[in-house]
Amino acid sequence: MKKRVKKIKGFSIYFMPYSEIRNLDSEGRMKKILDIIFGNNILILQGRLRLDEETRLIGDTMAMIGHVKNFRGIELAVISGNGRENLLGKIRNNVASTLFGGDIGAITIIGPATIVKEIKRNPKKIELFLNK
């Protein structure tokens, strides 16, 4: 019997500035992000979630596998400073984080696993591999 291969019908890349989630609580942030992911979009978020929110995102999305149609989990990657900035750089980052509420110098990529096969990351670049 010939194996049926599901093809991806299409996807969009959605860019979200940090200002869209800055004033939301964790619940609201999760909902906003998941709405985008469930719509078969790859989300590029300016900045990053808090670490507990990143962990929650992993847990929440795993809990949704099997409950949301065609959802198989996510691929996630964050590019941010490597923590080796000089003192001035660290102060600048801390001030920005305090003022704006998150590491807005970072970029977070989140994609549904049905579209994004793998995100390979090394300190200087991110490679996005898509499913055929």
Binding site: D52, E54, T55, I58, L76, A77, V78, R121, N122, P123
Partner: peptide, 17 residues
């Protein structure tokens, strides 16, 4: 394996926090 896996980074960061 490549250690720069986001899950590793998130979990380690979370424990540190």
């Amino acid at each position: 394996e490549n250690p720069y896996n986001q899950v590793n980074i998130t979990i380690i960061g979370n424990l540190a926090a």
